[in-house]
Simulated assay, not measured.
Amino acid sequence: MRSTATRVRRAVIAMVAALTLATPALAAQDAATTPTRVVIFPFELVDTSQEGEMDGARADQEARLDRLTADLKAQLAASGRYEIIDLTPVEADYARLAPMRGCNGCDIDLAKELGATQGMVGIVQKVSNLILDVAIYVRDVETGRVVQVAKTSIRGNTDESWQRGLRFLVDKRLLAAPPGGAPN
């Protein structure tokens, strides 16, 4: 009789131990499969080139910024790791506060209002027609802290170079980091 009770007790202890060990792993797996709710603000151009100073905004570059924003949303949504939050409900506030790169945290306020857990601000800095830098800053809405920075330099002011730079940032930086982002 004692041996049956001992076996039952050992079986119960083994089951409790297995559940105790499995619970954190299951929670981590669940967190990894739950998409991060993110608002992606339109890419912004900082043109510090001589051409930009003399000639101002260019239609082709504005169109590239729009394409980068749309492609970033599409690529992140397709990954399954992100749920893209529509900016439309706060569009008037966004238009009033833009650019996001210098609004002292207003991007976080807008993201919070939309129910996002992260906000992304993309910036293309044009040094010249040959040298451009592309950066995406990911901030946690709850803390306001930057959780990831993805940067690259591209050569050439063309549709192809801008798209190649974005693909690199998404594949090798944003999606290569663990869910929730990590500085890189």
Rank of each mutant, 00 (worst) to 15 (best):
T4E: 12
A5H: 14
T6D: 15
R7I: 14
R9E: 06
R10M: 12
R10P: 09
A14P: 01
V16R: 04
L19E: 10
L19Q: 08
L21H: 04
A22H: 02
T23A: 15
P24L: 15
A25D: 01
A28H: 12
A28R: 12
A28I: 00
Q29D: 14
D30R: 15
D30G: 08
A31K: 10
A32K: 14
A32E: 08
A32I: 11
T33K: 15
T33Q: 15
P35W: 00
P35S: 01
T36H: 13
T36K: 05
V39G: 00
V39P: 00
V39M: 02
F41Y: 08
P42T: 04
P42H: 06
F43R: 02
F43T: 01
E44P: 07
E44W: 03
V46S: 08
D47H: 09
D47E: 09
S49N: 05
S49I: 14
S49W: 09
S49M: 09
S49L: 04
Q50I: 14
Q50C: 08
G52A: 09
G52I: 05
E53T: 09
M54I: 15
M54R: 14
D55R: 13
G56A: 13
R58W: 05
A59W: 08
A59E: 12
A59T: 14
A63Y: 06
R64F: 05
D66Q: 11
D66W: 03
R67C: 08
R67L: 14
R67A: 13
T69G: 06
T69Y: 02
T69V: 06
D71N: 12
L72G: 01
A74L: 12
Q75Y: 06
Q75W: 10
Q75T: 13
Q75M: 10
S79I: 15
S79T: 06
G80S: 08
R81I: 02
Y82C: 01
E83H: 08
I84M: 00
I84L: 07
I85D: 00
D86A: 11
L87D: 02
L87I: 09
L87F: 03
P89Q: 10
P89V: 07
A92E: 12
Y94R: 00
Y94Q: 04
A95R: 15
A95T: 13
R96P: 01
L97V: 05
L97Q: 14
P99A: 03
M100C: 02
M100K: 02
R101K: 15
R101L: 05
G102N: 11
G102F: 14
C103R: 05
C103I: 03
N104G: 09
G105M: 06
C106V: 07
D109L: 08
L110E: 02
L110I: 00
K112G: 10
E113M: 11
L114H: 02
A116L: 04
A116S: 10
Q118P: 11
G119H: 03
M120Q: 04
M120K: 02
M120F: 07
V121A: 00
G122A: 04
G122W: 01
I123E: 11
V124M: 05
V124H: 04
L130R: 13
L132T: 10
D133F: 11
D133R: 11
V134S: 02
Y137R: 11
V138K: 00
V138A: 06
V138Q: 08
V138C: 04
D140L: 08
V141G: 01
E142I: 04
T143A: 07
G144Y: 04
R145K: 12
R145P: 10
V146T: 09
V146Y: 03
V146I: 07
V147K: 03
Q148R: 13
V149W: 12
